[in-house]
Design a binder for these strands. Sequence first.
DNA 1: ACAAAAGTGTTTTTAATACACCCATGA
DNA 2: TCATGGGTGTATTAAAAACACTTTTGT
Lengths: 247, 247
Amino acid sequence: MNLPGRNINLHISVDCVIFGFSTNQLKVLLIKRAYTNTSGTLSNDHKLPGDFIAIKEDLDLAASRTLEELTGLKDIYLQQFAFFGRPDRISKSMDIAWLTETTGHKIQRVVTAAYYSLINITDTNSDFAIKNNATWIDVKQVPDLAFDHATIITNGLAHLQLTLRNEPIGFELLPEKFTVRELQTLYEVILDCSLDNRNFRKKILKSTYMVQLEEKQSGVAHKPAYYYRFDRNIYEKHKKESLGFNF
Amino acid sequence: MNLPGRNINLHISVDCVIFGFSTNQLKVLLIKRAYTNTSGTLSNDHKLPGDFIAIKEDLDLAASRTLEELTGLKDIYLQQFAFFGRPDRISKSMDIAWLTETTGHKIQRVVTAAYYSLINITDTNSDFAIKNNATWIDVKQVPDLAFDHATIITNGLAHLQLTLRNEPIGFELLPEKFTVRELQTLYEVILDCSLDNRNFRKKILKSTYMVQLEEKQSGVAHKPAYYYRFDRNIYEKHKKESLGFNF
DNA sequence: ACAAAAGTGTTTTTAATACACCCATGA
DNA sequence: TCATGGGTGTATTAAAAACACTTTTGT
């Protein structure tokens, strides 16, 4: 988070909807915000990771900086998906007070550039995030949020769903090696539907960029599954342009 | 355009990529910008319609205001599609000088919210636009543009193409009544491909929201085509959610 | 031997593609 | 009657969907 003294642009911020996948849930990384207002009441809620941009900072860089500061991760899938600029998006008294305190300025109005990010949750980056006061929360259980952050998450999820149906991005949420079943569950959870496993396998495995590894699962009390990896080079070479307007 | 005296936010602007379709070309509405610099040289180029936002103005409203001021049209298809915030997007000396002159301020850096709009070009709105120093230019023939406006158009066109393949928005560029051939040509031009007319008709006409009118073309030296209209209510009722991930 | 999840094939249905001629009108 | 673009049908191919059992492992 930028400190008040830095050379920051108080009109423009970035907010990141950081998605992760674990225990068969799509999760989003939220910052715990505790704030004691002037009457001494403690408020406890959450907000999206985000920050004001520096005066000459590129928006994409501001977003990846926010992401790195929070998780320690670089070179992560990160896409702008919308901006939010309603003049009343900063209107709750708690939000106004919090901004005044953290920035040292009276903030009138902020336009925010929203990004969504897909990360593979590991112990390392999870610990890193927790130290930064962040927590992974199931997207279906998102609590009350600061500003219009609930809207931003809803909107980001819609973008994720759309992109997942049109581009191979599910891999970004999984480890390097993953099983077909893990991928299928990920699709089912994000798209909120159930998929026939035979048809899913057929569809996914006919693409050449799903590379089967020699390694299998071990220590599981059932037939061990093969691991696969996603080969981006093969994908880039063979990707199709589909016309298909069926609406 | 906002005048220097108004209560404007000099950090944030909106830019509109306004698409229209005529004489079998996809066109974009550009503002002619003539500027005599300090050494007396006259520069002549084009820019996207756009404006700084007012201090408390909603971005969507700023965009629709820009559109209405330029064309006289209200309630037009208008979608945000991206934001552009590179710190170097204002770097050409001509652009800097022009901003200083038109705003009366030294402008360091502006983040712009980009919208694309689809309008049905008519004599009325075309005359209106021409009076405002605007001109319809074939997207394939776009000249040198101010700032990063060439990038914005390219990006906007990509969004238009994507949306055209996934949602019925082609109608927005046509008059209320149109023929199937006009619609097909529109798809061919925007998607830059050729389509089999029998298959196109089959695909389009099986959807119930294409309503055939009794009126036919008249005065044409060939078999007159029936006019159709797009029924948004029927579309909203029957629209499908397609999963289809075939990448 | 049992529980648990992996992995596999075929049939049916639906959508996409390819392809060529007759029709209605104005000039 | 000719030129012009409108409008139509069928056969083929490809993809999606529906559906149930066998395999491998740990306990």
